[in-house]
């Protein structure tokens, strides 16, 4: 199996939507456990020892949000202790930490997602829906560095001419404003060249297609099938109430049914996919290298 980032961007999108979606629509500690293990393990596999600060922030968010709920909500039967005549219950505490856990797990998923989905992959996904939107985005992305570079150049030139003063904030503002105004003129002026260049290359003569370097291969179809199967199974369990979990008045799991167990397993598999993919690729390389 190859690393998850090597799959077709649409497959990656669907994967992350499913993984995060199920987690957000359920309030189930077991699903959360699978989700958290999968998401954090994948993040660690990709980034290694780095990002200690992110881990700390996420942990702090988890603790703070987890503790807020039992302080404001006093539902639940099992009283742990009493602060200022307010009972702190086990149920409210668990509810708080499960909710916080879901949030933090989604954060982790999102971090790896943005890491994997580079700009051109996102554009590809947009391009599938509308070639026009993709073109506009791509042109926008082209203009940002162009503008930044230009603004810097003009400011530097004006400085060396002794015309740009930044002695005090008003002078600086006045000079910035003038640079900005000429920047607009410049952009419009260049827009004409760009438009000519577009028309010279047959823009607007018919329906556009969209080219990308991503293919939809057999492995993509395979992975997509697994994702849909797992997600479908879990969703079925959710819909039938097999995965219901009650926090109040007491923490209670629904009686385990075959459907429930299958659903839990499916989500477990879904969350393990990136880890399998990542370690599988590493192992394959090591194996191949030992043969050389």
């Amino acid at each position: 199996m190859k690393s998850i980032s090597a799959y077709n961007p649409i497959v990656i999108c669907i994967y992350y939507l499913s993984a995060a979606g199920i987690l957000m629509f359920s309030q189930n500690p077991i699903l959360l456990l699978f989700g958290a293990i999968g998401a954090i393990a994948h993040f660690l596999l990709r980034n290694g020892q780095k990002n200690a600060r992110s881990h700390l922030y996420f942990f702090l968010i988890f603790i703070v949000l987890g503790l807020v709920n039992p302080l404001v909500s006093h539902n639940g039967k099992t009283v742990l202790f009493v602060i200022n005549d307010a009972p702190i219950t086990l149920e409210a505490t668990v509810y708080g930490f499960v909710s916080a856990g879901i949030l933090v797990t989604v954060f982790y998923l999102f971090r790896t997602f943005t890491d994997i989905m580079t700009r051109d992959k996102l554009l590809y996904v947009f391009g599938r829906f509308s070639p026009k939107v993709a073109l506009v985005l791509s042109m926008g992305l082209r203009y940002v560095p162009l503008f930044r570079e230009r603004a810097k150049k003009i400011t530097e030139t004006q400085k060396a001419l002794g015309l740009y003063k930044d002695d005090n904030i008003f002078d600086k503002l006045r000079c910035d404003l003038r640079v900005f105004s000429i920047l607009i003129t410049w952009a419009l002026e260049n827009g004409i060249t760009t438009a000519d260049s577009m028309e010279a290359r047959a823009y607007g003569t018919g329906k556009r297609t969209y080219y990308s370097r991503f293919r939809f291969g057999t492995s993509d179809i395979l992975l997509l099938c697994v994702i849909i199967l797992c997600t479908g199974m879990t969703a079925l369990g959710l819909a039938w109430g097999a995965l219901d979990f009650a926090f109040y008045p007491m923490l209670t799991f629904t009686e385990s049914t075959p459907l429930g167990i299958a659903s839990y397993l499916s989500y477990g598999i879904l969350m393990m996919i990136p880890i399998f993919a990542e370690t599988g690729e590493k192992l394959k390389w090591q194996y191949l290298r030992s043969k050389i």
Binding site: R119, D120, L123, P131, L135, S138, M139, L141, R142, L146, N190, T193, T194, S197, M198, R201, A202, Y203, G204, T205, G206, K207, R208, T209, Y210, Y211, S212, R213
Partner: peptide, 26 residues
């Protein structure tokens, strides 16, 4: 001017731009 003629942000999408306009298949 080299800069202003470029339409998109990536080298490969710039190469494909004209052909996309012609509506050729992927």
């Amino acid at each position: 001017r080299p800069d202003e003629q470029l339409v998109t942000d990536k080298v490969y999408s710039e190469l494909a731009f004209g052909l996309e306009n012609l509506g050729l298949p992927q």
